[in-house]
Computed example of a mutant assay.
Amino acid sequence: MHIIRRRPDTRQGPADNFTGAVWLDEIAAPAAPSRLRMVNVHFAPGAHTAWHTHPHGQVLHVLEGEGLVGRAGGEVEEIRAGDTVWIEPGERHWHGAGPRTFMTHLAVVEAADDGTTVEWQTHVSDYPA
């Protein structure tokens, strides 16, 4: 057992991968052989990810606020505190805060054999306002 009492500093989400103000708090990134990664992601109103995929899928659990999630070829879905979203491996998607509220979610992914957890793509051009 290993108890982590100090986490890395909060960091801002890079503009290449996010639109708007986004902050990332790493919760878990244990050493191999574990491939688990957990991050709390805090989105200001209207802030969101770029399009992206995950090699082994992703679980999002909304901790507070209201947001939106979209997938290629699908409808935009509203998400709110208490909702959990399962994103399939390789599914092209985006997620972020609604236009008027902050949103925080816990993002859980499994790294691929090469250590990657995400493939970032283009920015979302038609994010709902």
Rank of each mutant, 00 (worst) to 15 (best):
A97S: 12
N17A: 13
Q58V: 04
G70I: 00
R37H: 15
V124S: 02
H56I: 02
V69D: 01
R71L: 01
R71F: 02
V76K: 07
G74A: 14
G90F: 05
G73C: 01
R71Q: 11
E119Y: 07
H93V: 03
W86Y: 07
V22F: 05
G73N: 12
V108R: 02
G115K: 05
L106T: 06
D114W: 04
M38T: 07
L68C: 02
E64Q: 10
R80I: 01
R7M: 13
A72W: 10
G13D: 11
D126H: 08
W120N: 08
T10Q: 12
T116G: 10
A112V: 04
D25Q: 15
R11L: 13
L60S: 01
T122S: 11
G115W: 08
I79A: 00
E77Q: 13
E66I: 08
V118G: 06
V118I: 15
T53K: 12
G98M: 04
A81L: 07
V59L: 15
L24S: 13
P99Y: 08
P55N: 07
T49P: 11
L24D: 04
G46C: 06
P8N: 05
D126Q: 13
I87D: 00
V69Y: 00
G13N: 06
M1Y: 11
T53Q: 06
V108A: 06
I3L: 12
I79L: 01
T49A: 01
Y127P: 07
Y127K: 07
R71M: 13
T53A: 07
H61D: 00
T117N: 08
I3Q: 13
G90H: 02
I3Y: 10
D126E: 14
V124N: 08
H95L: 06
P55W: 08
G67A: 09
Y127S: 04
A112E: 03
H48A: 01
D25L: 06
Q121G: 05
E110P: 03
A28D: 15
R5L: 10
P8Y: 03
G73I: 05
V109S: 05
R92P: 02
N40V: 06
A21R: 15
G96P: 00
R71P: 00
D126N: 09
R37N: 15
M103P: 01
E119K: 09
P99C: 05
V62K: 10
V109I: 06
R71G: 02
A21Y: 09
A44P: 03
Q12L: 11
A50Q: 07
H52Q: 14
E110K: 03
S125F: 06
G46K: 00
